[in-house]
Amino acid sequence: MDLLGDAIAAMRVGRPGSTRTDLRAPWGLHFDKVPGAGFHVVLQGSCWLLAPGADPLALGTGDVVLLRGGRGHGLADDPATPLEPFPSARPADLTATGSGARTVLLCGAYHLDLVRPHPLLRELPDVIHLPARLGRHPALRSAVELLSHELDAEETGTGAGVPPLVDLLLLYILRAWFDDQAVGGRALALHDPSIRAALEALHRDPGRPWTVAELGDRGGLSRAAFARRFTDAIGRPPMEYLTWWRMTTAARHLVETDDALSSVAARAGYSSEFAFARAFKREFGKAPGRYRRLT
C-alpha cells in the first residue's frame, strides 16, 4: 500500500505533459501558471529558477524542482537574461541555438485537481528543490537517469517509455521531500506507525464499517489518543477522513468505470444507493449520476 501513490491518484485529472528543451546560452523562458504542478529536471548543464517573491535559485545537473500549484515562473541561463514565453502548445522537443553553454531540461506539468487536495499534500511548499547529492534519494536519481536515457535514445518504443517515467517521477519527488522532513505536520502521517497503519487499513478497505477504536487498536493506541494524533497529523478526525476518502474514490470509480451506482455505493460502504447519493451530493454538490455525466 502506497499512501502517497493513493494521494496522487485521488488528485490526478490527466496524464502529465512534458517537453525536452535543448538550449544554448543566452536563453530565458517564462512558464505560465498551470492547473496542477509544474516540474523541471536538469538533465545537463545548469540554469536559474526565477519564482515570484523568491531569490533566484541555482539549479545544476541532476537537480529536480516541483512548483506546487503550477505557479508562473521563469528559467534562464542567467537571472538577468530576458524571458521569452514558453510555447503554449508544449512541443515534445524545444531547441534554442546560441553560442554559449548548453543546458538540457525536461520541463512539464502534472494535471491535478487542486480544489480537493489530499490532506497529505496540503502543506507542500510553493517550491520543492531536490538537488543532486551523492547517495541521497537513489530511486529519484535512478528515475532521472532513466528519463535522460529515454530522451536521448533512438531505440524502438522510446517515446512510450517517457510518460510512465514522468508519472513515476512525481511519486519519487514527493517521497524524497517527505523523507527529508522532520516528523511533524503532514509528514507525521507517513512517519508515525500508528497513523500509517490506520491510513493503510482505510485505503485498503474503505467500505468496511470502521470505528475509531478499531483503527486505534491497529496502531496500539487507545481510542482517544489515536483520535487526537490522527487529527493533528491529517487535519481532520478519522471518521471525517474516511467519509472524504470514500467519496473521493467513489468519484474516481464513477468517472473511470461503467459500474452500476449500486456497485459504486457498496464499494464505498453504503448498502443503500439513496444514502450514498445523499452523502455524495453533500461532498460534491451534485448527484452521482449527474457527476458521472458532466465529468
Results as ranks from 00 to 15, higher is better:
74 G>I: 11
103 T>E: 05
89 A>R: 13
113 D>P: 09
74 G>M: 05
73 H>T: 10
106 L>G: 03
83 L>K: 12
80 A>T: 04
111 H>A: 12
74 G>Q: 03
90 R>D: 13
105 L>F: 00
76 A>M: 05
83 L>Q: 08
82 P>K: 08
86 F>L: 00
113 D>L: 12
111 H>S: 05
111 H>M: 08
90 R>S: 04
92 A>I: 04
81 T>E: 14
103 T>D: 02
105 L>R: 02
94 L>G: 06
104 V>C: 13
102 R>P: 12
83 L>V: 12
111 H>W: 04
92 A>E: 14
104 V>S: 01
85 P>I: 03
99 S>H: 06
105 L>C: 01
82 P>V: 05
108 G>D: 09
103 T>R: 00
91 P>R: 08
89 A>I: 08
106 L>T: 00
78 D>V: 05
95 T>D: 02
77 D>Y: 11
83 L>R: 01
96 A>P: 00
96 A>S: 15
77 D>S: 00
83 L>I: 02
87 P>G: 03
74 G>N: 14
82 P>S: 00
109 A>T: 01
97 T>C: 04
90 R>F: 13
86 F>N: 03
85 P>N: 09
102 R>C: 02
87 P>V: 01
112 L>K: 00
90 R>E: 02
105 L>D: 09
75 L>Y: 10
92 A>R: 15
104 V>T: 12
82 P>A: 08
72 G>T: 03
77 D>R: 07
77 D>E: 05
85 P>K: 11
103 T>K: 01
97 T>F: 06
72 G>Q: 12
88 S>A: 15
79 P>G: 13
101 A>Q: 12
90 R>K: 08
91 P>Q: 04
84 E>R: 14
78 D>G: 01
97 T>D: 11
89 A>C: 10
77 D>N: 01
93 D>E: 12
89 A>G: 05
105 L>P: 07
73 H>W: 09
73 H>A: 06
93 D>L: 11
110 Y>L: 05
95 T>M: 05
105 L>G: 00
107 C>H: 14
108 G>P: 00
96 A>E: 15
76 A>P: 07
95 T>K: 14
96 A>I: 13
